[in-house]
Design a protein around this nucleic acid. Structure first.
Lengths: 340, 340
DNA sequence: TTGAAAGCGCTAACAG
DNA sequence: CTGTTAGCGCTTTCAA
């Protein structure tokens, strides 16, 4: 492969490894321009590339960060990844990626592997089921930023979107469009703050708009492909009076719509629907979907920036929770009224 | 951070580093069970983790592979990535990812960085505009597998999907559904074999079905968001007699459909449409989209398996081109006729 | 302005 | 069955 080392370069240029190293790292202050040019020329001639392993071993900085995600299939995450990638590129970092698949054991194992590889820091969408692990990382002072989900009781960098606000936006939009029986659909999962918060946001928005506890309709559904469609079918038969559904996930929304159509109900005439997450296909659905957009690219970008800053800066940023704002994108799935 | 090294473990256990190293690497043949247990215990007590950098430096194997993609946004690629990820997990490899953004300079730079980090091999969706680079990699014997696009004239591992076949499937389906004026839409890009091949497949399928050169309608369009919609609008006005469009890309298809609807034309009554790539949303479009499915997950999986095999095996697999089969998924965007 | 030398943490002959 | 020793390719005092 690439067998040329710093010694080869030094020998050829008739200088010491030290000098080459200095030049490599831009420490020009102490090298004569002449030698510098000579060395640079040799480097080019040899197509020499410093071995990052050796460098990292010595300097305990690898300029690599890791990201652990849990579901690449969801375009929400590819967008986050893009944000992270762009920042890495601009900061001279490389990126390692892995998939916890929502399993705490996998999450723990991957984090260990990342540490083993001396990755400088980690961006993670946490399963939230490894509190002791997160705590330990914090104590080790290991640069870490958790995104999308809140990690309770542990003071680490945490970047989330305001899910209560998002839900509130959705519910109010529905109410302003004259809907009277509004249900919320949510995946079963006790540990995930995002979904809890969306349901909570739904509840408070309903209550503060004059609805009562009895008006709250919360339908849980399974994340297994296809099962939301079944759930929706059954739900719609059991609740013929429901005239609006707030669907709290982008994949879920697709199945909800499918079920509605299968029952020959019309959107938005019979049922209005607000989805969560703006995707490439949202506006191409029939009808174009009104949805809550999350700043996913920004989340990735901010997370990576924050992480890299805590890695390189002397004065580390104080950990805390950064809350990003969701946004209502109005299209035609709730009726024609514009704005709220 | 994690300051405990192999020496600490050795000292504590009262053995040499060699012994610890052997145990770490599962070379149990030459260690007494008693010492082994003692060492293992110390490792656990210390929560010791070998430094992968030092290991890689010594053994010139990092157990990391790199993947260079060009467009994370497209779900086709997230699926490929998933395939690669799954194989890595099963084989004890970690994955570095980057985004060439379709720019040859970026591609070259990232490949260099990967080599600098002593990544054991690379999976790449090549821009195909760096022939000398690919050639050099081949000569260096650097493990590399190119996916999705054909690299002409260079004998490296290359995994592609049969695009002519895919196009042929699409065109024949359209013809069997009675369409007479069939157009193909393709992105402008002279270097990308996938798109060329789809157009060629369209042409041959048309010609062998009794159409003549004059019947071929090839519409190029720009990859910039929104511009395909404009192109389609203009196209449909200029070609009012066209009754079918074969759209060679999944994003493109969304815009084509949007334009068709804007003109109040009906799918499939007025215009039939076959898309390329099966996505999560294909079946939820209005009407559900008939499309050519590519085995994207398999492509990622096979690529990673092949790459890892050439990395670890003594007898390297012979490079060559592996062709995967596309598949026609029939839904309702071409009329109701089932099968071909 | 430059270089010698001592490691970073690990592996792998080679000896015992 | 276990240890000694010599590096892997780089950075970084310290000295010249």
């Amino acid at each position: 492969m690439n067998k040329v080392t710093i010694s080869d370069v030094a020998a050829k240029a008739g200088v010491s490894k030290t000098t080459v190293s200095r030049i490599l790292n831009g420490i020009y202050d102490h090298t004569k321009e002449e030698t510098r040019n000579r060395v640079l020329q040799v480097i080019k001639d040899f197509d020499y590339r410093p071995n990052a392993l050796a460098k990292g071993l010595k300097s305990s900085r690898t300029n690599v960060i890791g990201i652990v995600l849990s579901n690449l299939k969801n375009p929400f995450w590819s967008t986050v990844l893009e944000g992270v990638e762009d920042v890495c590129r601009d900061s001279g970092f490389n990126l390692m990626i892995c998939n916890s698949d929502e399993e705490p054991e996998m999450e723990e194992q991957y984090i260990r592997e990342f540490q083993t590889r001396r990755v400088d820091g980690i961006v993670i969408n946490p399963t939230v089921r490894n509190p002791i692990l997160y705590q330990k990382l914090l104590e080790q002072n290991y640069p870490l930023v958790a995104i999308n989900r809140r990690i309770p009781d542990i003071c680490i960098h945490n970047i989330v979107v305001d899910n209560r606000k998002g839900a509130s936006l959705a519910v109010h939009h529905l109410i302003h469009n004259g809907r009277k029986k509004i249900a919320v659909f949510v995946y079963k999962n006790l540990n995930v703050s995002t979904w809890q918060e969306r349901v909570e946001g739904y509840c408070s928005a309903m209550l503060e708009s004059g609805f009562t506890e009895e008006d709250l309709i919360i339908q849980e559904t399974d994340q297994l492909s296809g099962s939301t469609k079944e759930t929706t079918l059954k739900f719609l038969r059991d609740h013929p009076d429901v005239d609006a559904i707030f669907s709290t996930n982008n994949m879920m929304t697709l199945e909800v719509i499918e079920a509605i159509k299968e029952l020959k109900l019309q959107i938005p005439k019979d049922i209005a629907i607000v989805g969560y997450d703006e995707t490439i296909w949202s506006k191409h659905l029939d009808p174009p979907l009104t949805t809550i957009k999350q700043p996913s690219y920004e989340m990735g970008k901010i997370a990576a920036q924050l992480l890299i800053k805590t890695i390189v800066a002397k004065r580390k940023p104080k950990p805390g929770t950064i809350v990003l704002e969701p946004q209502l994108i109005i299209r035609n799935s709730c009726g024609s009224q514009i704005g709220k």
